[in-house]
Amino acid sequence: MSYVGSQNPPQPRRPRRRPLTVAVAALVPGALLGWVVYDAVGEGGTDQASAQTPAASTSAPPTAPPTASSTSDDEKPSPAPSGPLKGKVVVIDPGHNPANFQHTAEINRKVNIGTNWKGCDTTGTSTNSGYTEAKFTLDVAHRLRTLLQQQGATVKLTQDGDRPYGPCIDERAKIGNKAEADAVVSIHADGSGAGNRGFHVILPAKVKAGTADTGPIIAPSRDLGERIAGNFARATGTAPSNYVGDGTGLVTRKDLGGLNLSTVPKVFIECGNMRDSEDVALLTSGAWRQKAARGISEGLVSFLEA
């Protein structure tokens, strides 16, 4: 994901009504351990960059056949086993689609996000060596789905690399709404400049325009975002973004259709910067991606059991 090019710039910072850091007691005290690890070993992760196609040096992912998508409007989430989250529905939104770059006309089509019109989707970003954001988000989504299902949650993905492109950002929101999800998390990685590091969680701003009305979901989404941020820091040992969010790991935006059009609690998480070599070492590590999935899962569990 990115704040430039086909993505939107960050909104001006609002005056904060209270200090808000990932380390405060309202989040997870254990997140302080993440800071210690970060200082000791230099781990981190962040997000912001130009959306682009995969590097030419890598082979392009094959175009998925236009078969019925697992996210069609008629599909219902699969039954989940018994566990502490039995009866809870979680929608995971893996950012972008591996084949988006082969369908530029389709993903450039404008859709209404309430405040304005935006492109259906983007290609996402990639590392300099060609590891794509779309591949990263699907991998983390699969790991996260397994962890949540093990605790009894019913889990639905907005896409699983099983459709030619998309879904568009308005349809992504619709999937969570139709599932009447108890929580939705959209997974991304950024592509900012080298030296920009650290994760951040994006929260919905107050929007009431057209079909968008985020008023009812602002408070629960903030609660969800704070819990994910604290647990992500603790599980991965990474620090909040050093370039957005004033060190809190939390950013509020009103220009994202996936948040504007949601009627259920939803946040985005930018797990790291795919253009910073230190973050890339984390994002391309399967062991670290498992930690990332665990951190997001623990944040979701904390929210759903509250």
Rank of each mutant, 00 (worst) to 15 (best):
Asn8Pro: 10
Lys135Gln: 07
Val280Phe: 07
Leu283Val: 11
Tyr243Thr: 14
Val37Arg: 14
Asn97Cys: 11
Asp190Met: 01
Thr252Asn: 00
Thr263Met: 06
Ile269Asn: 09
Asp74Thr: 12
Asp255Thr: 12
Asn128Leu: 13
Asp246Phe: 10
Gly193Thr: 15
Asp139Met: 06
Val251Phe: 00
Thr137Ile: 00
Val22Trp: 00
Ile113Leu: 05
Asn97Leu: 08
Val301Tyr: 08
Leu85Ala: 12
Arg253His: 14
Thr214Cys: 04
Asp160Gln: 03
Glu43Ser: 14
Lys110Trp: 09
Ser2Glu: 10
Ser277Glu: 12
Gly258Leu: 05
Asn116Ala: 14
Gln52Ala: 14
Val267Asp: 10
Gly272His: 04
Gly272Ala: 09
Gly198Cys: 09
Ile202Asn: 06
Leu203Gln: 11
Val301Ile: 15
Phe232Met: 04
His188Gly: 03
Gln150Thr: 13
Ile228Trp: 00
Phe303Asp: 06
Ala49Asn: 01
Ala229Pro: 04
Gly166Lys: 07
Leu300Asn: 05
Ala40Leu: 15
His142Trp: 08
Gly124Ala: 10
Glu171Tyr: 12
Trp35Asp: 02
Gly295Met: 08
Glu106Lys: 08
Ala55Lys: 05
Thr58Trp: 13
Ser285Ile: 14
Val207Met: 15
Arg14Tyr: 15
Asn231Tyr: 02
Phe268Asp: 12
Lys254Asn: 14
Ser262Ala: 15
